[in-house]
């Protein structure tokens, strides 16, 4: 048991942070959002540095650390799907964007408009669907990631990835979600805390009011716990109960962080000239994925307490 990074992990994260500080960040996310684009340059840079293959070459925990950091840095990229989920299902990590799809999901899908590979969760099996990148219709949306529409015929097609693959896809997808939620919640909170230290009303910093401080402190407790729960689950290879706990906790945290950061930031928080929306709007999208907090919570109970649970 050791919560500190070891030498190799520290070295990886140092390089990841340098790369992200140069090539990601809220400003870039805002520019990409205006064009409805995915960050292809960032994807290339991460791939060339070897970070997209961390899961197979080092381990899932190291890939998880990358996913969480990328979300904190407002990366507009399928980094969770490509660096963490795909390696758990495919022998070779695709060189094209990966979108995660639920066979019964009718809503738009993150990154689908740019995807070259769809991983479809369809009951007991996962299926691999190859598509021409750019062939799926983009869906206009203000929730952080570019979305695309996946027609039902496509959601029902593709090559089955074998026994147990459906369940495996859901587990690693839940984990990636938990990490992205955690990273984005942490960044949204940090953005708001920084703002409230500066912003003065009634002759004092807003962040000095106890009524405000306690709400921020509660958010901090939740974001810290979300991160550790997700990293623990990654280390253990994404077991069903742990990923459901991490995802449910992170989704509930996201709802709370969204509410509190926007309320406490006032009107500036709703503008595109302030960074908060880059993280907070994405939180709403992420917290709904895979049925959201209620579905994750039911999965916990099924995994832990149902008749014949492991």
């Amino acid at each position: 048991m050791d919560f500190e990074l070891d030498g190799e992990q520290q070295a990886i994260l140092d390089s990841v942070d340098v790369l992200l500080s140069l090539r990601a960040g809220p400003e870039r996310a805002i520019a990409l959002a205006a064009k409805g684009e995915l960050d292809h340059d960032l994807a290339r840079a991460l791939r060339e540095a070897g970070f997209l293959s961390l899961a197979t070459e080092v381990g899932p925990l190291e890939a998880a650390l990358l996913v969480e950091r990328a979300a904190r840095a407002a990366a507009v990229l399928d980094v969770g799907a490509r660096a963490l989920v795909a390696p758990a299902l495919l022998r070779e990590v695709p060189d094209v964007p990966v979108a995660l799809v639920h066979a019964d999901g009718r809503g738009p899908v993150r990154h689908a408009a740019f995807a070259g590979v769809l991983l479809v969760a369809d009951g007991a099996v996962a299926r691999l669907v190859r598509v021409e990148p750019g062939s799926l219709a983009p869906v206009r949306s203000g929730y952080g990631d570019p979305l695309g529409f996946v027609p039902e015929a496509l959601r029902r097609s593709g090559e089955a990835l074998g026994a147990g693959s459906g369940e495996r896809l859901l587990r690693w997808w839940r984990l990636a979600l938990a990490l992205e939620l955690s990273g984005a919640s942490t960044a949204a909170l940090a953005t708001t805390v920084a703002y409230l230290k500066q912003r003065r009303q009634f002759g004092r910093a807003i962040g000095s009011f106890q009524a405000v401080q306690h709400r921020l402190a509660r958010c901090a407790i939740r974001t810290e716990a979300s991160r550790w729960l997700a990293l623990e689950a990654a280390h253990h290879g994404a077991p069903g109960e742990r990923v459901a706990v991490a995802a449910a906790h992170a989704a509930d945290t996201a709802a709370q962080v969204f509410r509190e950061t926007h309320q406490l930031s006032g009107a500036i928080g709703f503008t595109r000239e302030h960074d908060l929306h880059v993280f907070s709007m994405r939180l709403q999208s992420l917290r709904l994925e895979l049925g959201g907090s209620t579905a994750h919570a039911r999965a916990i109970t099924a995994e832990r307490w149902a008749e014949g649970a492991p």
Partner: peptide, 21 residues
């Protein structure tokens, strides 16, 4: 009921991991 139990489990696990820290 399943949801309530699941959510309670997230709080217990959060407390555990923060204590471990």
């Amino acid at each position: 009921v399943a949801e309530r139990l699941g959510h309670a489990r997230t709080l217990v696990e959060a407390a555990r991991v923060l204590t471990y820290r």
